[in-house]
C-alpha cells in the first residue's frame, strides 16, 4: 500500500514537472498566433480568400435555381451545391480553395525559421530553457490553429449565407459532409504549410524559400497536368486493345495524376461534396450493373476518400519529419 502511494506521489511529481515544462510551448504558440494574425501578409491572403469565396458564393446562389432543378437523387443534397456549383463565370468554392489554399500555406510557413535566424532571435530563444523542437512544433501548431479557425469560419460563413438566401436548413448529413470537407481542406493546406516550413529550415534566405514553395505549387497546378497529358498521348493504347488494357491504362494515368497533391484534394472534396460520385477510378459496366442510382451514404464517401486523405497526411508528416531532423541537427549561431 505504502509502495503504491510512493509511486503515485512520484507520478504526481512527474506530471507536475512535465506540465511546467510544456507551458513555454503554449507561450510560443500564443506569440506565433498573434504574430500571424497581425502580419500584413496574412491579412492580404485573408482578404483575397474571403473575396474569392464571396464571389464564388455569389455565382453559386445566382444560378442556384438551375442547380437544384436537376434529377431527384441529387436534389436531396442541394445544400452541398453551394460549394461546388458554378454558372461558369467564376470557379466554385472548392476550386478556389484548392488553388489558393497552397498559397496560404506557403505564405504562412516560408519564413518561419529563417527569418528568426536572420533577425538573431533564434539563438536568443534557444538559449532559454525550452526544448529545441518546441520552436518548430509551436510554429506548426500555431499555423494549424489559425488555419483551422479560418477554414471553419469560411465554411460556416458560406453555410450561413446559403441558409439566409435559400431558407432551407442543411440536413445533418450535409452538415457532417461540410465539416469533413473543411477538415480535409485544413489537411491540404497543412501539407503546403509543412513544405514551406521545410524550405524555411533548408534555405537561409526567406526569398529563396518562398520562391521554392511557389514554384512547386505552380508546377503542380499548371505544368504537371501538361506533362501527364504528354505521357498519356505517348502511351495511349490503340483502339483495338481489350477493355482490360484500356482500364489499366486509365488507372495508370490516374495514379500519375495523383502524385499531384491538388489532385488528391480534388478527388477527396468532389466525392465528399458530391455524394453521387461512386468511384474515383474508371468503372466498368459490369461493376455498375445492379447498382442503385442513389447517392452514397457519408460512411461510403469517407471510405472512398480515405486513401487520398491518408496520402495528404503522410506527405505532411514526411515533410515535417525532414524539417524536424534538419532543424534539430543544425548548429544555431547568431545571425
Amino acid at each position: 500500500m505504502q509502495f503504491i502511494t510512493v509511486i503515485l506521489k512520484e507520478e504526481f511529481k512527474m506530471n507536475n514537472s512535465s506540465s511546467s515544462s510544456v507551458r513555454p510551448f503554449w507561450v510560443i504558440v500564443n506569440k506565433e498566433i498573434s504574430d500571424t494574425v497581425r502580419s500584413w501578409r496574412f491579412l492580404i491572403m485573408l482578404g483575397l480568400i474571403v473575396l474569392t469565396c464571396m464571389g464564388s458564393l455569389y455565382t453559386a446562389l445566382d444560378d442556384f435555381s438551375q442547380a437544384i432543378k436537376a434529377s431527384a437523387p441529387e436534389g436531396t443534397f442541394f445544400f452541398l451545391k453551394l460549394y461546388t456549383h458554378t454558372d461558369g463565370t467564376l470557379p466554385s468554392f472548392i476550386v478556389f480553395i484548392s488553388f489558393l489554399g497552397p498559397l496560404l500555406g506557403i505564405s504562412m510557413g516560408f519564413d518561419s525559421i529563417n527569418s528568426e535566424q536572420n533577425n538573431g532571435t533564434l539563438s536568443r530563444i534557444l538559449a532559454q530553457p525550452i526544448y529545441r523542437d518546441f520552436v518548430l512544433n509551436a510554429k506548426f501548431v500555431a499555423a494549424l490553429i489559425v488555419l483551422g479557425i479560418l477554414f471553419f469560419a469560411l465554411s460556416l460563413l458560406v453555410l450561413g449565407f446559403g441558409l439566409l438566401f435559400i431558407g432551407i436548413p442543411p440536413t445533418a448529413e450535409e452538415f457532417l459532409r461540410i465539416v469533413v470537407f473543411t477538415v480535409v481542406s485544413i489537411i491540404y493546406v497543412a501539407f503546403w504549410l509543412n513544405l514551406a516550413i521545410l524550405f524555411s529550415v533548408k534555405f537561409r534566405q526567406a526569398a529563396t524559400s518562398a520562391l521554392a514553395g511557389i514554384s512547386i505549387w505552380l508546377f503542380f497546378s499548371i505544368f504537371f497536368g501538361m506533362i501527364v497529358n504528354l505521357i498519356a498521348k505517348g502511351l495511349a493504347p490503340s483502339v483495338f486493345v481489350s477493355e482490360n488494357q484500356v482500364v489499366a491504362f486509365q488507372r495508370f494515368i490516374q495514379n500519375i495524376m495523383r502524385i499531384n497533391p491538388g489532385q488528391l484534394f480534388n478527388d477527396a472534396t468532389t466525392s465528399l461534396l458530391m455524394p453521387t460520385v461512386r468511384s474515383l477510378g474508371p468503372l466498368t459496366t459490369e461493376q455498375m450493373s445492379g447498382a442503385i442510382p442513389s447517392p452514397l451514404p457519408l460512411g461510403q464517401s469517407l471510405m472512398l476518400v480515405w486513401p487520398q486523405t491518408t496520402a495528404l497526411i503522410a506527405g505532411t508528416i514526411v515533410f515535417f519529419a525532414i524539417a524536424y531532423t534538419m532543424f534539430m541537427r543544425r548548429e544555431v549561431r547568431s545571425r
Binding site: 511546467s20 513555454p24 507561450v27 510560443i28 538573431g120 532571435t121 536568443r124 532559454q128
Partner: peptide, 28 residues
C-alpha cells in the same frame, strides 16, 4: 545561465517590454 549572443536580435515589431515579457514567460 543567461546568454547574450553576439549581435542579439529582438522581434522588431514588438516593444522592448513585450520582448522581455516573452523571455520571462518562456522561463516559466
Amino acid at each position: 545561465v543567461g546568454y547574450l549572443p553576439e549581435d542579439v536580435g529582438f522581434y522588431d515589431d514588438r516593444t522592448g517590454l513585450e520582448n522581455l515579457v516573452y523571455t520571462a514567460l518562456l522561463n516559466g
